[in-house]
Design a protein around this nucleic acid. Structure first.
Lengths: 114, 114
DNA sequence: TTCTTGCTCAACCGAAAGGTTGAGCAAGGA
DNA sequence: TCCTTGCTCAACCTTTCGGTTGAGCAAGAA
């Protein structure tokens, strides 16, 4: 898996990682803080953070021996852009179809729907 | 992997599947049509479609021996809702931080920024 | 300097993902 | 009826994912 968008979607495909993102939206947190509510090892959480980081969803700094994790909100734009493009395209299709149907039922003869 | 959102994100984590969605946004297509541009077997494409279907991104009908695939655009809303929620939360954090800084530099004494 | 805290790295494991090929089925067409 | 088209299902293989444990390192605290 190479490209950015693939990494972002893959990162968010895991419920635990989505939960982390949700919590990080409220506030930055250390690895220990993040790990606290979950029933997995600290190393597992550390790996999850790495996945989020590689996807560009999160940034890690250093503060004494702590490593606060910070949500990088710009990535959301990347997803939204992708999603909106196709959503709008589909909407246009429906709009065109509606127009076509409207045209058909008025333009060529009748009006008596069965 | 159980929940809907996880499936949707996982489905879109694959570039080939994203490309299929992009093409399906323009128009419905059969399995053969979808498979044509890719350098993988028809069976592989069939599997990919199944993944999209299980995520609710796509619906398959039957039309003679063909099985046209149709994009289900509503799922996009699910993603957008998830993303927007946290994006807005992060924005509010920044806004609060800005307010705090503004308050600090005006409210308590001074004005002479270094 | 030595201890403790907060984390990461490495090796390993089982399950799932994504690919292949081969068989087979359903629904027109000849 | 038998053939062809358009697909799916099943079995198998390799790679990746998410988890584990054990070792180790960096940076305050004693």
């Amino acid at each position: 898996m190479e490209d950015r968008l693939s990494k972002v979607f893959a990162a968010l495909a895991d419920p635990l990682r989505r939960d982390m993102v949700a919590r990080l939206a409220a506030d930055d947190a250390t690895v220990n803080e993040l790990a606290e509510p979950y029933d997995v090892s600290l190393q597992a959480v550390s790996k999850h953070i790495k996945v989020l980081q590689d996807a560009g969803l999160v940034r890690r700094s250093r503060e004494a021996q702590r490593r606060p994790v910070h949500l990088e909100a710009e990535v959301f734009d990347l997803m939204t852009a992708w999603i909106e493009r196709y959503r709008q395209q589909v909407e246009q299709r429906y709009r065109r179809l509606d127009d076509l149907l409207a045209e058909e039922s008025s333009g060529t003869s009748e009006g008596a729907a069965s």
